[in-house]
Design a protein around this nucleic acid. Structure first.
Lengths: 224, 224
DNA sequence: TAGTGTGAATGGATTCACAGCC
DNA sequence: GGCTGTGAATCCATTCACACTA
């Protein structure tokens, strides 16, 4: 009984991606079915968690059998929306931007990079390495190009100071979602989806974990 | 009253990084103090959330005044452990690895890249762009180099298939934390901290959000 | 027997609301 | 008056436990 979207826990949506990744790995090793227990073990989750998560999105499993790997893969892709292709644009061709331009995962998840922008006039006009038939454009052409090519997603890889202005332009141009790599909290209207990836935040989380472990792992042993 | 570490909600630790980022921005614009309300508004959190989060880590605020920006910055950095410098190593010099090698944020958060490894013999021996005095080494030298240079953190930027083997080698060499960019669920012993960044997961989350919004934003309007 | 789906119970995190301080 | 820190109340997510199915 696929629950109505509003009531699905956000963490469950995040885990859906992990299930998919794991299922894809199982498919590559030609495993046909998998149980919630096995799936949970690989991702360090309880079996109940796995079952409940999947059940939020529909009837996936077969009692006595488990989950059929390729069936579930298909259905999760559909739910996540990565079974269709969308045009995307990348703004900012610094180090990170170049790595993103060369990243094959966009295509695999249904996002096609059809335009790239940069503020640096020296980069404008050059072809983008690793992307067929894409040439760096100046920011002032963003709006028109996004509309003409029916771009639905914008990827921001510019310095923090410039990020909000770029986001505003992307929104004005009509994108439906923004993936932000700049280390700032962006504002976007509610009809535009926004996801941020901040490497500094990840580094800090790791640093904290390390500090935590070394200070508390030996509760009684290492005191004297 | 700084709570004991075990009992701090994990989400609060994640938000601590966001508070820091925001406070650093305020410091740059020379703002001396900030209230929980203002901080919350910028990050889209309630003021109560902000106060409670900060209180988990100690007495930060001044009633009637708010939080003193640079005082709190200093204290958060200390808590996160980014006030000290640690040596780090990068494994994998593909597109992403190169972007990471050039990323200035590592240094700013107290991580210094002192060694880089790659399995491709053609890359071995070359200097690493953007890193002073670092030359690409073959993987077989990982263990010895990590020990000799006192490397505490490993960054994995290799293909998914190779990631677990690299993680194992890093663990065997004695690192205390691993930052993983490969799209797999890695296993590490409990005394080694592990954080993963999977771009594909982020893309899927964004895709899902977009799909969600367009299907439910207009509950009554767009049905006929 | 092996394994899902799901209400009920538990455990965590967020919000409320207010005492206390500047 | 403005603002923090925090117990109590609420809300949300996870786990338990079992009816049900292949």
């Amino acid at each position: 009984m696929s629950t109505n979207p509003e009531s699905i826990p956000l963490p469950a949506v995040r885990r859906l991606s992990l299930y998919l990744r794991q299922l894809e790995a199982l498919a590559r090793s030609n495993q046909a079915t998998v149980s919630s227990k096995e799936l949970g073990r690989a991702l360090r989750l309880t079996d109940a968690q796995v079952r409940k998560d999947l059940a939020y999105f529909g009837q996936f499993g077969h009692p006595g059998i488990g989950y059929r790997v390729d069936e579930v893969i298909r259905r999760i892709r559909r739910i996540l929306g990565t079974d269709k292709t969308w045009n995307a644009t990348l703004v900012g061709l610094g180090n990170l931007g170049q790595a993103l331009a060369a990243y094959r995962g966009f295509g695999r998840k249904g996002f096609q990079l059809v335009a790239v922008f940069d503020a640096d006039e020296r980069k404008v006009g050059r072809p983008v390495e690793a992307l067929e038939a894409v040439v760096v454009q100046p920011l002032r052409e963003l709006r028109e190009t996004v509309a003409r090519l029916n771009v639905r997603l914008g990827i921001i890889a510019v310095p923090a100071e410039a990020a909000q202005a770029v986001a505003d332009q992307l929104v004005a141009a009509g994108v439906r979602g923004i993936l932000n790599f700049a280390p700032v909290a962006l504002l976007a209207p509610p009809h535009v989806a926004l996801t941020s990836v901040d490497l500094a935040v990840q580094l800090e989380q790791l640093s904290f974990q390390v500090g935590m472990q070394t200070s508390s792992v030996r509760p009684a042993t290492e005191r004297g």
